[in-house]
């Protein structure tokens, strides 16, 4: 589905991403983890079109999408959520969701005035979908609330809901779990699993919460120092020597080794 080929992104002398190659399979929930500064967020943002890579290619379903704008990627079916939830604060939750689908005739002046029938039909269709999403996320009680008044966790749910308004090929989740309490995290996790199993959504997520990763993701891509360290099932990956070293740091490992003393 997504293929990243030998991607480099250098900020001055800093090699944020230094030759990463990644595959994200259709229908998977792929986790992207690594210690701070590993380049996972940068890689994520390159794929999502926020940064243009120094070199390397990104393919979406065999099509070269390197350097396309986020807006163009949205139209190709690549959606993303934000680490800090974004919302249209002065619109209601339902209106927020209804904003997502593209090419609504109501947004074209000519159609809005001269084809009211078409506008109304599409409007009803989009509204029905929004209501369905609201039910799926179990937030009907806030459907007509202004999105700006929602709690942090509810905004995260709204972020997820937004990706359900169109038939996305792949959804990138940027730390959906950050700053969310356990109960809500479980709700979000359940929603992601159901979307993946029942509707065949493909997800790629950057996440710090290891339990959350372990519950949802397979495979997990581990990054360190701008490179891909290893790819595999979360349980396997966590036992991998190189991964532990990357997370704990070489120094700590050496100290641990020396503390055991020479045999």
């Amino acid at each position: 589905m997504i293929r990243v080929e030998d991607l480099h992104l250098h900020f001055g002398g800093i090699r944020a991403v230094d030759g990463a190659s990644v595959n994200i399979a259709k229908g998977s929930i792929t986790g992207l983890i690594g210690p701070n500064g590993a380049g996972k967020s940068t890689l994520f943002n390159v794929i999502a079109g926020l940064y243009r890579p120094t070199s390397g290619k990104v393919w979406l379903d065999g099509e070269d999408v390197t350097g396309l704008s986020p807006h163009a990627l949205f139209h190709k079916g690549l959606l993303r959520t934000f680490q800090i939830a974004h919302e249209f604060a002065s619109l209601t939750v339902r209106e927020n969701l209804m904003m997502v689908p593209a090419e609504q005739p109501g947004e074209v002046l000519w159609d809005a005035w001269f084809k009211p029938g078409r506008v109304r039909a599409r409007e009803a269709e989009v509204r029905a979908r929004a209501d369905e999403v609201i039910d799926f996320l179990e937030i009907p009680h806030v459907a007509d609330e202004l999105a700006g008044n929602l709690s942090g966790g509810q905004k995260k749910l709204l972020e997820l809901g937004r990706t359900m308004m169109v038939d996305a090929k792949i959804v990138f989740l940027d730390e959906v779990g950050a700053g969310v309490n356990r109960t809500l995290l479980n709700t979000i996790g359940d929603a992601i699993l159901r979307l993946n199993r029942e509707r065949g959504y493909t997800f790629c997520m950057v996440e710090h919460d290891m339990d959350f990763i372990g519950r949802l993701c397979d495979p997990v891509i581990v990054m360190a120092e701008g490179k891909v360290l290893t790819v595999g099932h979360p349980a396997e990956v966590m036992k991998n020597e190189a991964v532990i070293e990357a997370y704990l740091g070489r120094g700590l490992k050496n100290r641990k080794a020396s503390a055991m003393g020479p045999a």
């Binding site: 949205f74 249209f88 604060a89 619109l91 209106e95 927020n96 904003m99 109501g106 809005a112």
Partner: peptide, 22 residues
């Protein structure tokens, strides 16, 4: 109107508007 709401949405949060169908 849908167009008016799109304008308000764009004004609210340009980044998000770019990541939706607007």
């Amino acid at each position: 109107t849908r167009t008016g709401k799109a304008m308000r949405a764009y004004s609210d949060n340009e980044d998000l508007a770019l990541l939706s169908g607007i």
